[in-house]
Computed example of a mutant assay.
Amino acid sequence: MKLGVFTVLFADKNFDDMLDYVASKGLEAIELGTGGFPGDAHCKIDELLHDERKLQQFKQKVADHGLVISALSCHGNALHPQNKIAEPADRLLDKTIQLASKLNVPVVNTFSGCPGDHENALYPNWPVTPWPHDFQEVLKWQWEEKLIPYWKEKNDFAESHHIKIGLELHGGFSVHTPGNMLRLREACGPAIGANLDPSHMWWQGIDPIEAIKILGREQAIHHFHAKDTIIDQQNMNRNGLTDMTDYAQMRDRAWYFRTVGFGHDVKTWADMISTLRLMDYDYVVSIEHEDGLMSVDEGFTKAVENLKPVMVKESVGEMWWA
């Protein structure tokens, strides 16, 4: 298993400085944004797709720093009911899959998207309750008319390029739990899997260790994010887990993101890493920093310090004791 970082938090650094900094922390992998919500500070997709010399220089710089690219990420909403939002996200996903193939990067991360509630809708509709029954009708239409047809096509496109798609299970999008992740995978194909982020499990009331088991038994974990969450029970009692309070108003929120080890103890993280190994995930744990109480440097450094001791890196070999 390798420890890495989603480099969007270093958007103020140029590519070379970012590589120097990440390597200086002893990390082994980087996850790069190609556009959409993460931006493209370190990966200009059109340049790299159409200029072989720049592509080779790019690959060489990463290798020279002793790093690998764990994933390319283009989080967006390709199923947004407004074409001016959906179409660029869809084109970016296709180009990101093509670039990943050229770079020999096995995973592309994104969101499942969330459609509207009918063909002429303007905004996404995220049903989260089975009653009144209107919500069930919306959900059925979204899956049958939008989600399954779209992701079947993307599964086939990804497979043709030998790429896996890691969907981040994130509130506000149609795939946000292990259950609906597996539903989409079963309907669309095995290239579809999870970019599992425990922070989004905690605030939904899902135990990430159990989520790892559920998805791992189906070989459905394609990538893994390391980010923590804290629950403020007083605010949770007031606002509930679907709290709409602005992220910046941390004192009033029911939950908010923390760096690794500041929402849950290191033993919990050790248990997660061990469960990943138990479920045959032997790839990258990619740090994502969205902690409003710490600077980028401090939050990232503490995440590295907390994760390094619990990472499992060597292969097991034979059981000498049995």
Rank of each mutant, 00 (worst) to 15 (best):
I165E: 05
H176V: 12
W131A: 14
D243C: 13
H161L: 04
K61Q: 10
E186G: 05
E52I: 06
K59F: 00
E52W: 01
D156H: 12
I273D: 10
H50S: 02
F262N: 10
P178G: 09
E186I: 00
N306V: 10
A86I: 06
F58C: 10
Q60S: 11
S315E: 15
L48G: 07
F111A: 04
Q142Y: 00
V304R: 03
R217G: 12
H225E: 06
F262G: 01
G216D: 04
A248Q: 15
N104T: 09
A89T: 13
K95V: 05
A248I: 15
L32F: 06
G193C: 00
D12E: 13
G4L: 09
P178H: 02
G39I: 09
P115I: 02
R238S: 11
L241D: 01
S24I: 00
A270P: 08
W321F: 06
N77I: 10
L9A: 14
R253F: 10
K59M: 01
R185Q: 05
Q136S: 14
R217P: 06
D46F: 02
D16K: 12
D156V: 10
T7W: 07
D228L: 05
N83C: 08
I209H: 03
L49R: 00
L147T: 11
M181W: 00
E298S: 13
G292R: 15
S73R: 14
D134R: 15
G113Y: 11
L9F: 09
Q98M: 13
W126S: 01
